[in-house]
Nucleic acid binder design. Structure first.
Lengths: 352, 352
DNA sequence: GTCATTTGATAAAGCGCATTATCAGGGAAT
DNA sequence: ATTCCCTGATAATGCGCTTTATCAAATGAC
């Protein structure tokens, strides 16, 4: 129909108010302090003109001029809103959003970075699109550390949600104390009377998985048990079956701790098919919040990951980094997990 | 520690390559067509220089120069990731994200617009922060139409997810065909043998609610039933109780259709407490996908709202609007709902 | 050898705003 | 009357990139 109504610019406001663009800018941004003096009446004229024209500053121009724009990037290596793992990411996002809201930042979700195969890349033909935001929060499982390394070298400010280590470069993150929580869980299981406790997980070597396994060993040691390589059961693709369970039984195992994810179902199924009662015949500790089609969370004994808090803290950390001009070394926050009593840990049958 | 490594600019690349910034820009953006000619060797020099410096274009400056930035805004009137309604917004976001990803746009979440009371405003002291993005997708329930009207008058391109009408101004949206789906549901209930069908909803007058109620009336008419004002049961705050149910029973009601939300629980509770079997004593049709702590969705008879599709279509619509220079009138998409068989509709007891 | 055309590239003008050093003018103090 | 200082503002520059009209030199045509 008609031509698009032309947006009014700062200079339009200035003209209408009979002042210079500089004055208008100062007034509208409330920068009338120190040796800049604009009498109230003039300010009124500017405000009136702005209101009359429906003036809205162009944020892009503002960003360019002042070098920052109040945007926090959120980058995930998979889709941000995955259907399959919605319950996994959701709490992080809740925390991130609420912190950003409180602190007055907007969130930029990098959805354009798709590679077509469902994965995402930070760099594409050399361009780092993250730079559109003042800084970014990263989450998810990265394919390789190369992009992270490049980001660090660029000097781009970011915080990972979840511990990430990069040899030679220290990066910032918020993490859950998986090791401590796992060790504490082992304590509980030990105190329930168990002496042969197996670890079941997927054959993956993320930092968080390493933390859990370290916690497992520490928990054993702490209770005077020795670490038995045979009880560390890592399977590919969550393929834990009756055979595997049989093996553990033959080794005298009366309790297991299990990583979260589909593998929990696999373990439960194995028990069911072998007519093993949980926790009667086999106690079960879960290393985090089960998610997906898992039943009521409070059924499982284990601990709860402070996901929301991790998200929120990541935002706080990032903003702190953005506000300090000089580099103060990597920022890190490790948050405690909350024990969940549940009802899958009991005394071993032989003792009962 | 050390000063932040200075980012290299386009002019640095140009200098290193021994060309002008203009040339560098043209080469890096692959704009060497038409009457702009740069021989391959020169182009190589530019690429090499860019690679050597690790050059990354500043997206903010690019945006300012070209007048758009590839950002799609997402604005919700409540928090985007509310804990209570997670299942409600999530599917929209899935659709929005996947469409944005496909089309190569990033998403800008306006979380800074909080008013402190959990609600959000588009305008704050006259500033429309949405303008950070090229266009925006709006969702959620607005407090008033004032902001929408202002947005329209500004000429800002946006698409609402969900039908929204604004007297005097036509706006773009993607909607679900609630009226049609509700009418079809009434058909099913009628065909099951019911002749007194009540409508239970909350006392709210959003467009979608009006659509459902219109569909209810149309469904009745279509089956030769007359609309009885007494069977239209709108309660405030989802407070549907035994008294209300008793009234309906006395009016001969054998089936009800219920809006989605907490009110479903209220209705189920009332039935339970009155020892009314569903669907034996009372058939129940649900006007959409139940969400929240509701039981398995396939339990309820009703229909499914194409939420994901609505989100995705909104993105497509918006991008189409952005790409056409002249205004072509409001863009609208109405999507059909899918019937869900469920098991809460049966023949009325008196007929069985 | 002259003129027309093509090639290779660039200068310059924005995009819309922020920032700071500077300045004209008027009143107060001397 | 001169100096000084304060008030009220602004000119000018820059942020980093895009875009287009323009142009000098090289090439080709006759």
């Amino acid at each position: 129909m008609s031509a698009k109504k032309q947006r009014s610019r700062l200079s339009d406001v200035a003209q209408l108010a009979g002042v210079s663009p500089a004055t208008a800018s100062l007034v509208l941004n409330k920068r009338v302090t120190g040796n800049v003096r604009i009498p109230p009446e003039t300010q009124e004229r500017v405000f009136a003109a702005a209101a009359k024209l429906g003036y809205v500053a162009n944020p892009v121009a503002q960003s360019l001029a002042k070098g920052r724009n109040g945007l926090l990037g959120v980058f995930t290596f998979e889709a941000i809103f995955p259907i399959t793992q919605r319950d996994f990411y959701y709490p992080f996002l809740v925390g991130i959003e609420s912190a950003a809201e409180t602190l007055g930042y907007d969130l930029l979700l990098f959805t354009s970075a798709s590679t077509g195969d469902g994965r995402r890349r930070i760099y594409r033909n050399g361009q780092n699109r993250l730079r559109l935001a003042d800084g970014a929060i990263l989450l998810g499982i990265e394919d390789s550390k190369d992009e992270l390394r490049a980001l660090v070298e660029e000097g781009y400010p970011f915080v990972f949600v979840g511990r990430r280590e990069l040899p030679g470069a220290e990066l910032s993150y918020t993490a859950a104390d998986y090791a401590g929580a796992t060790a504490a869980l082992i304590d509980r299981i030990y105190n329930a009377g168990h002496r042969r406790i197996a670890y079941i997980g997927v054959d993956q070597h993320t930092e968080s998985a390493l933390d859990r396994r370290r916690g497992y060993q520490e928990g054993l040691l702490h209770n005077g048990l020795t670490f038995d390589e045979e009880l560390m059961c890592l399977v590919p693709d969550a393929r834990f079956d009756q055979t595997a369970m049989q093996k553990l039984l033959e080794l005298g195992v009366t309790a297991v701790v299990v990583e979260i994810g589909p593998i929990i179902s696999a373990v439960l199924n194995a028990c069911k098919e072998m007519a093993l009662d949980v926790p009667g015949d086999m106690s079960l500790g879960v290393l985090g919040n089960p998610f997906g089609d898992m039943e009521d969370m409070s059924y499982f004994s284990g601990f709860s990951i402070p996901r929301e808090e991790m998200g929120a803290q990541a935002v706080h950390l990032l903003i702190r980094m953005l506000n300090e001009n000089s580099f103060h070394g990597p920022q890190r926050v490790v948050l405690p997990c909350t024990p969940v009593t549940g009802s899958t840990i009991a005394a071993p049958r032989s003792r009962a």
